[in-house]
Design a binder for these strands. Structure first.
Length: 698
DNA sequence: GAGCACTGC
C-alpha cells in the first residue's frame, strides 16, 4: 500500500477538492484510487461532517474494496467502513466510509433526494458509463449546485473521457494519477482478418512457439466462438511435436460458465505450462486473471441494444471503443512487461473506434429510468430537459413516455400518477411493477411476485445451451411443468411453485437443468419484492407462494399481466400464427420457438397475448409470452387512441435540438460489421421481406 | 424451430 502512486498526490488532491465542488480524477490501472481516495479524504476530516460514499458498478467490487479498506484501517467491516449492495447492507450508524453499487445510491436518493448523509460522493469507474452512473452524473450536477457548501463530488474516469466529464461539470479540474502498469507493447495487424477466429488461432500458436513463458488472454465475442477456438487450439497444441514447446492448458471464460469452471482461471499456474484463457469481455473489467503477459484482441464485442423506433432488442457484434482496447491491452501488463496483439490495423483504432463505449443510456429502453426520474419530483427537473452527459435521443425518450402512459404510470400531461409513484418504489421494470399492483387488486399477488422475480433472473435460470447438456437432455428430459399451454409466465410460476414444494431443494434444480444460483437469486428478489409490497400496502399481505386458490386457467394473474404489459401486446394475424404488435409502432413478429405456448386443436395460437420482450435474432421474435383475453385488451386499445405525444412530453423541440448535437443514434448507425454474425438489421429486413413475399403468394 | 455480451435495483 505504501508504494501506491496515488499517495504522492495526496496534498494535490486535497487542495483541489477543497477549492472545487467537483473534481475529475483520471486514475490509471493500479493507481489505487478505489481504495485510497476514501482514506485520503477521511484523514483530512471529511468523514466528520458526513459519510464518504463510493459507488462501484459491480457488487463484488463494492464488497472486496470495502473489505480491503477496512483491513488497511484496522477496523471491522460494517463498522467505520461498510458496504451496501442489493440484499445486503453492512453499514451501521458508525459507518464513515461506505462502498455501494450505483443502483443502491439511486434507490437511496429516491427516499432522500438531497443525499444529506453524505459529505463526499465518489463515482468510481464512471467511464464504464452504466445506465445508473449516467443518471447519477445528472443528479450530481444538480446536487452540487444545491449543496455547494457541504458536498464534494469526485468522478474517476479514463483518459479519453476526462475532458468531456469536466466540461459537463463547468470545466472542473482534472487530476491525473499514474498507475502501476508495466509497459505493454502494442502490435497491430496489417489489415483486418477475414476471420478473427482463425487469426486468433494463428497468433496464439505463434506466441506459444516463439515467445517466452507467460499466459495468453484472448478476447472473443461470445460462447460460440470461444468453444470453437478452445477446441481448435487444443487440436493444434496437441499436434505440436513433443518437447518443442512447453505444455499448455486452454481455459474458456464467459458468463454462462458455471462458477466452479470460472474460478479455474484463478488457481495457481502449473510450472512450465502456458495457459490460454479464451474469454469474453468479462475479463476486461469484471475478472482479473493473474499471470497474463500476452493479450490477443479481436477488436469486437457483443452488445445488446434497443431500437426505440421498433421497440426491439438485438444482440450485435460491434467494434470496441478505444477505452475498451486500452483496457484489454492493460491486462497484459499487470505483473511484468507484456505484449498486446491487436487483430486490426492502427488506422482502425485511430479512425474507426469511438473514444468511449456508447453509453448504456443510448442502448436501452428508458421507461424505467424515466419513471424513476419523474418520480423523484424534483421541482427544477423536467425529464425532457434533464441534463445528461450524453442525452438519449428524443425518439427514445418519447418511446419511454408512451410506454409509461399505457401502463398508467403517467397521465396525459406527462405527470406521474399515484400508480406511477408506487411503481417507482419497486426495483422492477415498469411492466412488472404495474402487474404487481394490479394483481394485488385481484387477489393473486403471491403469484405475480413469483412471476416478477422469475423474470428478473430469467436468463440465469436454465443451464447454458452447451452441446453436452443438449445431449444429456435428450436422454433424460427435465421434468418441468409446461405452463398449462398458457405460455412462459405461467410456466415460470409453476417451476418456482414446484421448487417451493420441494422446500427449495438444490438437487431438484440440478436434476432439471436449473441454475442453482439463479433460483437462489429469484428467492431473494421475491423476498425483497414481498417486503416492499407489504410496506406499500400499509398492511399485511399474504405473499406466501402456493397459497392462493386459483382457477386452473390462471385468469386473475393473466388479467393482471395484460394490464401490466399494456405496452407489450400482440394480436394474431387471421390466417397464420404470426402476430402484429399493438400500440404505436406495429411490428410483425413470431412467438419464439422456445416458448411453452401451445396452439389449439386447429394449430392456432391465441388471438391475443402479452410478450416480455421483442428480440431480433434471425427473425423478430416475442420472447416469454402469455395468452390473454380480447376483452382485457380492448380498454388498453382505447387508451392508445387518447394518446397525444406533444402533451405527454410538454413540447419536445428543445430535446430534438439537443440530441441532434451530441447523439450518435445507435438505432440508425451502421454498427454491424460485414461478414460477422452481427448484421442483424439486414437479416431482420430480409426475414421481413421473405415473410411478405410468402404472404403475397397465398 | 432457435441460441444467450456484461452488469444492476
Amino acid at each position: 500500500m505504501a508504494n501506491l502512486p496515488i499517495l504522492q498526490y495526496e496534498d494535490k488532491i486535497l487542495e483541489t477538492v477543497e477549492q472545487n465542488p467537483v473534481v475529475v480524477i483520471i486514475g490509471e490501472t493500479g493507481s489505487g484510487k478505489s481504495t485510497q481516495l476514501s482514506q485520503i479524504l477521511h484523514r483530512r476530516g471529511y468523514t466528520k461532517s458526513g459519510v464518504v460514499g463510493i459507488t462501484q458498478p459491480r457488487r463484488v467490487a463494492a464488497v472486496s474494496v470495502a473489505r480491503r479498506v477496512a483491513h488497511e484501517l484496522g477496523v471491522r467491516l460494517g463498522e467505520e467502513v461498510g458496504y451496501a449492495i442489493r440484499f445486503e447492507d453492512r453499514t451501521s450508524e458508525r459507518t464513515q466510509i461506505k462502498y455501494l453499487t450505483d443502483g443502491v445510491l439511486l434507490r437511496e436518493s429516491l427516499s432522500n433526494p438531497d443525499l444529506n448523509q453524505y459529505s463526499v460522493i465518489i463515482l468510481d469507474e464512471a467511464h464504464e458509463r452504466s445506465l445508473n452512473t449516467d443518471i447519477l452524473l445528472g443528479l450530481m450536477k444538480r446536487l452540487v449546485k444545491m449543496r455547494a457548501s457541504n458536498l464534494k463530488v469526485l468522478i474517476t474516469s479514463a483518459t479519453l473521457d476526462g475532458d468531456k466529464v469536466s466540461k459537463f461539470f463547468s470545466d472542473c479540474p482534472i487530476l491525473t494519477i499514474p498507475g502501476k502498469l508495466y509497459p505493454v507493447e502494442i502490435l497491430y495487424s496489417e489489415e483486418r482478418p477475414s476471420s478473427y477466429l482463425e487469426s486468433s488461432l494463428k497468433t496464439a500458436l505463434d506466441i506459444h512457439i516463439r515467445e517466452p513463458e507467460g499466459d495468453v488472454l484472448i478476447f472473443m465475442t461470445g460462447q460460440d466462438d470461444i468453444e470453437k477456438l478452445v477446441s481448435k487450439l487444443e487440436d493444434k497444441v496437441r499436434s505440436l511435436e513433443e518437447g518443442s514447446c512447453m505444455d499448455a492448458v486452454i481455459l474458456p471464460l464467459h458468463g454462462s460458465l458455471p462458477p466452479e469452471m470460472q474460478v479455474r482461471v484463478f488457481s495457481p499456474p502449473l510450472p512450465d505450462c502456458r495457459r490460454f484463457i479464451v474469454a469474453t469481455n468479462i475479463a476486461e473489467t469484471s475478472l482479473t486473471v493473474d499471470g497474463v503477459v500476452y493479450v490477443i484482441d479481436s477488436g469486437y464485442v457483443k452488445q445488446r441494444q434497443y431500437n426505440p423506433s421498433t421497440g426491439m432488442y438485438s444482440l450485435d457484434v460491434v467494434p470496441i471503443s478505444k477505452v475498451q482496447a486500452n483496457q484489454r491491452a492493460g491486462r497484459a501488463g499487470r505483473t511484468r512487461p507484456g505484449k498486446c496483439y491487436r487483430l486490426y490495423p492502427s488506422r482502425v483504432y485511430h479512425d474507426e473506434f469511438l473514444d468511449v463505449t456508447v453509453p448504456e443510456i443510448q442502448r436501452s429502453s428508458l421507461a424505467g429510468s424515466v419513471l424513476y426520474l419523474k418520480s423523484l419530483d424534483l421541482p427544477d427537473i423536467d425529464i425532457l430537459k434533464f441534463d445528461f452527459l450524453d442525452p438519449p435521443s428524443s425518439e427514445s425518450l418519447q418511446d419511454a413516455l408512451k410506454q409509461l402512459y399505457l401502463v398508467d404510470a403517467i397521465d396525459g400531461n406527462g405527470s406521474v400518477t399515484s400508480v406511477g409513484q408506487t411503481m417507482a418504489e419497486l426495483p422492477l421494470e415498469p411492466s412488472l411493477s404495474r402487474t404487481l399492483l394490479e394483481a394485488n387488486k385481484y387477489g393473486c399477488i403471491a403469484q405475480a411476485l413469483t412471476v416478477a422475480a422469475m423474470l428478473s433472473a430469467e436468463t440465469t435460470l436454465l443451464s447454458g445451451p452447451s452441446k453436452t447438456v443438449e445431449k444429456k437432455r435428450k436422454l433424460a428430459p427435465p421434468d418441468l411443468p409446461d405452463g398449462s399451454g398458457l405460455g412462459d409466465h405461467i410456466q415460470l410460476l409453476q417451476i418456482y411453485e414446484h421448487w417451493y414444494q420441494t422446500d427449495y431443494d438444490i438437487g431438484w434444480c440440478k436434476d432439471n437443468d436449473l441454475k442453482v444460483r439463479g433460483m437462489m437469486f429469484v428467492r431473494d428478489v421475491r423476498k425483497q419484492l414481498s417486503q416492499i409490497m407489504q410496506k406499500l400496502a400499509k398492511g399485511p399481505l399474504d405473499v406466501l407462494a402456493n397459497r392462493e386458490r386459483q382457477h386452473r386457467d390462471y385468469r386473475s394473474l393473466r388479467k393482471a399481466l395484460c394490464v401490466g404489459y399494456g405496452n407489450q401486446l400482440g394480436e394474431r394475424m387471421i390466417h397464420h400464427n404470426g402476430y402484429r404488435t399493438l400500440g404505436f409502432k406495429p411490428q410483425v413478429v413470431q412467438v419464439h420457438p422456445s416458448s411453452m405456448l401451445k396452439p389449439d386443436e386447429e394449430g392456432k395460437f391465441p388471438d391475443y397475448l402479452v410478450y416480455h420482450e421483442l428480440i431480433a435474432t434471425s427473425r423478430p421474435y416475442m420472447r416469454n409470452v402469455c395468452a390473454v383475453d380480447m376483452k382485457w385488451v380492448m380498454p388498453i386499445m382505447n387508451k392508445v387512441k387518447t394518446l397525444d405525444i406533444n402533451k405527454l412530453s410538454g413540447g419536445i423541440d428543445h430535446i430534438q435540438k439537443n440530441s441532434e448535437e451530441h447523439v450518435p443514434d445507435i438505432s440508425k448507425k451502421e454498427v454491424a460489421v460485414t461478414g460477422l454474425p452481427g448484421d442483424r438489421e439486414s437479416r431482420i429486413q430480409a426475414a421481413r421481406e421473405r415473410f411478405l413475399a410468402r404472404k403475397a403468394t397465398k
